[in-house]
Design a protein around this nucleic acid. Structure first.
Length: 863
RNA sequence: GCCGGGAUGGCGGAACUGGUAGACGCGCCAGACUCAAAAUCUGGUAUGGGUGACCAUGUGGGGGUUCGAGUCCCCCUCCCGGUACCA
């Protein structure tokens, strides 16, 4: 054993040993319990960021722990390789996306290996490989056969200068990020997957997912947004047609004072053709991004269309407005407005002087206060003709029946969830396997012609997808014929790839099928670890896709992820300068110097390069777009992988967001150095005697008790709580205790030997390189630590003679008394009352009550 | 806007089931070692008062429940994530 801890030499050597022995390669072994541990695979952006390090360290700690429990552990890694950043790099640096992506993968693979993650690298896959995406093309054609795929127009952000579709992220303050042009909403034909057909099952199965955080399930429930309501048809006053709206509050029907339709609604378009003011309004509405977050924060604007509908119960005329906050993509693109009982309708009515008619009264008979806000609670009907006095349920049923008889309404279950738009007008993605025949008729590719390969050797001209100008890609034939046909140039949403990679990891080399029998052995994933930002979209699409695969006979289980661990974001403050045109350019924290006040708070920041001040932005998720990532490579080079792993696990519990500070890493390194030194000094004195051969003093028995308490605590933290920070803190405490209390006797050396071995085993999943070496030094060169059984606390060693009990008087701590571990309630109470400081506070007062929590606390309540 | 989450010393965090607020670490202060520095070691470190034992205050703000509240309930503020084409 080296005297000095030298991770730079040690870690690569240990990693080489793992690689040579194929330590983490696994196969199907029905004699052992399987454990599939999966982290969300990374987008190969160029370099690992701290979020990756955090995510993959959590996964690796769990995988290594499960391995020490004797399970057959699969932990794979791969690349979510298609995506927007590769196209941006192509446009900016004139490098083909495939080349850029593959070189990023090579670099990042090296970084992951340098961090010592126990992956089965033989299963590595990249979604941009045709061997991978051919199967989603195949699957898409199957879904097409089943009627789960359809084509429909949808609104996109259109950049009129660059002549391209923009992602919501690329629209900044209503303008294209590159061109600066005001974006326009434009309708184009798109491909959809019928996720709404699975809405009920996706909702219902959330109740079965006991291993998922409640917050994620709640978000998914709300996202799916099942509601029961009424689809009501309001007849147009001066035409034969009608306006259809959906409402969950038919009880408020008598309070309708106007209708609102989306700018894209046919009624609005028809009005625009007659009325220039309306046309102008629609044009202004068209200059806003498709993002819901943007639309919902807009000033609520609207205009009357000059047409009325007839109220289906009262026969009164109700005006129809067009409003910028009504979305064509939701429901029918029109709503009935009840300003008295809906917040948004209320604000709009106030702004535009529309009448507000209360029809719901609180059940206690008091008057609703609608002077300043809508009354949105459910209650009892008034001003509603013969429905007066009914409650929500009664009114719902009665109005549904009445309108149903008139043919004016139907009960309907509706979802907020919309079908999944899977097509993208981009190059760097999986080609949608469809061709268009001579009459533009649509023909899905035949299985034998798959994969439709994405040409990788491309010249980038301008910003548009090069596929559109590549005859070699475009020109093809209708499958099974010689009839000329044109290829679809749209590619899949990258969520398509990430919706089934976990199944492919089970059998990455399957040549004849999307997945084979091996997937039945490994699936479902036992624990899935990834960022909380994926709580809805990715995790909902993956659940949906898995159910599609199940219904295609490719899976047995109903849900792909038994347990979900959502890690919080790794955040960092942002630094930027704002140009005159409002465009912000962000600077990496590593390039910024900060000035702090005497309390350590940052008060000013300047760019190191030019010494000029930069603005301090909010603390946000580390991201490329905010340029606030901290490069883990710098820390790995400086301290080694184990220190980075240890610090990342120690700084915060996984679920919590972590504000990165690089000053504290030193402490983690210090801890490893001191554990190393302790072990070195211990081993230098030769082998310790076996514990059984010595007679430990009471102090040593106490120390042993702490060793075994630490085993129990760390096991609970790692297996049940997933709180690695407190597990590490507990081991640090134990190391401190072992360090302090080790006189040089055979008994003490035996306890120390046991203590050090326990520390090494408990830390093995977190700092696998360093502990491997320490384990060897402690006399276990013959058995690799990675498969050494996890320690179990010895119940005998845990026994204590005395315990401490806290004594409170009126809920305030006044003393701590020591009592025998088996002391009765009465004895604990007596000991508490006998304490001098307690007597000071109880003297002369009347004791009204004594609360005893045995073994913990005595609270004396005095008057 | 809507949905979900969060706020505890100078900083990251701990307190798991309503029962000792501040474990563990960073930083800082003092001391030891050293010609000196680094490294290392020892001690201290919520705030205010007291030589001290201790005492008072204290978990974003306001109210409540309880013998007892960081933890439960109501209201509010700010921050973070998502908001369907970033991944």
């Amino acid at each position: 054993m080296q005297e000095r801890y030298n991770p730079a030499a040690l870690e690569p050597a240990v990693q080489q040993r793992w690689e040579d022995s194929r330590a983490f390669a696994v196969g199907e072994d029905t004699t052992r319990e399987k454990f599939y541990c999966l982290c969300m695979f990374p987008y190969p952006s160029g370099r690992l960021h701290m979020g990756h390090v955090r995510n993959y360290t959590i996964g690796d700690v769990i995988a290594r722990y499960q391995r020490m429990l004797g399970k057959n552990v699969l932990q794979p890694m791969g690349w979510d390789a298609f995506g927007l950043p590769a196209e941006n790099a192509a446009i900016e640096n004139n490098v083909p996306p495939a080349k850029w992506t593959r070189s990023n993968i090579d670099y990042m693979r090296g970084q992951l290996k340098r961090l010592g993650f126990s992956y089965d690298w033989e299963r590595e896959l990249a979604t941009c490989d045709a061997d991978y995406y051919r199967w989603e093309q195949w699957f898409f054609t199957r879904l097409h056969e089943k009627g789960l795929v359809y084509r429909k127009t949808a609104v996109v952000n259109w950049d009129p200068i660059d002549q391209t579709v923009l992602a919501n992220e690329q629209v900044i303050d209503g303008r294209g990020w590159r061109s600066g042009a005001l974006v326009e909403r434009r309708e184009i034909p798109q491909w959809f997957l019928r996720i709404t057909a699975y809405a009920d099952e996706l909702l219902a199965d959330l109740d079965v997912l006991e291993g998922w955080p409640e917050a994620v399930k709640t978000m998914q429930r709300n996202w799916i947004g099942r509601s029961e309501g009424l689809l009501i048809r309001f007849a147009l006053a001066d035409a034969g047609d009608h306006l259809e709206v959906y409402t969950t509050r038919p009880d408020t029907l008598h309070g309708v004072t106007y209708m609102a339709v989306a700018p894209e609604h046919p009624l609005a378009r028809a009005a625009a053709a007659r009325e220039p003011r309306v046309a102008e309004f629609l044009a202004s509405c068209a200059q806003v991004s498709t993002s819901e977050a943007v639309i919902e924060k807009l000033e609520k604007r609207g205009l009357p269309l000059g047409i009325d509908v007839v109220h289906p119960l009262t026969g009164e005329r109700v005006p129809v407005w067009v409003a910028n906050f009504v979305l064509m993509g939701y429901g029918t693109g029109a709503v009935m407005s009840v300003p008295a009982h809906d917040e948004r309708d209320y604000d709009f009515a106030k702004t535009h002087g529309l009448p507000i008619k209360p029809v719901i009264w609180p059940a206690d008979g008091s008057d609703p206060d609608i002077a300043h806000a809508a009354y949105v609670e459910k209650g009892v009907l008034k001003n509603s003709g013969r429905f007066d006095g009914l409650d929500f349920k009664g009114a719902f049923d009665a109005i549904a029946e009445e309108l149903g008889k008139k043919g004016r309404a139907d009960r309907q279950v509706q979802y907020r969830l919309r079908d999944w738009l899977v097509s993208r007008q981009r190059y760097w993605g999986c080609p949608i396997p469809v061709v268009y025949g001579p009459g533009d008729e649509l023909v899905p590719e035949s299985p034998e012609r798959l994969p439709v390969r994405l040409p990788e050797d491309v010249e980038w001209q301008g910003v548009a997808s090069p596929l559109k100008s590549m005859p070699s890609f475009l020109e093809t034939t209708v499958p099974g014929t010689t009839t000329p046909a044109r290829r679809e140039t749209d590619t899949f949403d990258t969520f398509f790839e990430s919706s089934w990679y976990f199944a492919r990891f089970c059998c990455p080399d399957a040549e004849d099928a999307m997945v084979d029998e091996r997937a039945r052995y490994w699936m479902p994933v036992d624990i899935y670890i990834g960022g909380i930002e994926h709580a809805v979209l990715h995790l909902l699409y993956a659940r949906f896709f898995h159910k599609l695969m199940r219904d295609t006979g490719l899976a047995d289980c109903n849900e792909p992820f038994t347990r979900l661990l959502t890690q919080g974001m790794v955040c960092k403050e942002t630094y930027f300068r704002e140009a005159a045109n409002g465009k912000k350019s962000y600077f990496n924290p590593a390039a910024v110097e900060t000035e702090t006040d005497e309390k350590g708070r940052v008060i000013a920041a300047r760019l190191a390069a030019d010494g000029q001040p930069v603005e301090i932005g909010p603390v946000e998720k580390m991201s490329k777009s905010k340029n606030n990532g901290i490069d883990p490579q710098v820390l790995i080079d400086l301290y080694g992988a184990d220190t980075v792993r240890l610090y990342t696990m120690f700084a915060a519990p996984p679920e919590q967001s972590l504000e990165w500070s690089d000053t504290a890493v030193e402490g983690a390194s210090r801890f490893l150095r001191s554990l190393w030194r302790m072990t070195y000094e211990h081993c230098a004195k030769g082998p310790a005697a076996p514990l059984e051969a010595t007679a430990p003093s009471p102090e040593l028995r106490e120390l042993r008790c702490r060793v075994h308490e630490t085993i129990a605590k760390v096991t609970d933290d790692v297996s049940r709580r997933y709180k690695f920070n407190t597990a590490i803190a507990a081991v640090m405490e134990l190391v401190n205790a072992l360090n302090k209390a080790a006189p040089d006797t055979p008994a003490a050396r035996a306890v120390l030997q046991e203590g050090l071995e326990v520390c090494v085993k408990l830390l093995a999943p977190i700092v696998p390189h360093c502990t491997e070496a320490l384990w060897e030094a402690l006399g276990h060169a013959d058995e690799p630590l990675s498969t050494t059984p996890w320690p179990v606390a010895d119940p005998e060693a845990l026994k204590r003679a005395e315990i401490a009990v806290v004594v409170q008087v009126n809920g305030k701590k006044r003393a701590e008394v020591r009592v025998p571990a088996d002391a009765s309630r009465e004895a604990q109470e007596a000991a508490a009352l006998a304490d001098p400081n307690v007597q000071k506070f109880t003297a002369g007062a009347q004791i009204r009550k004594v609360v005893v929590v045995p073994g913990r606390l005595v609270n004396i309540v005095v008057a």
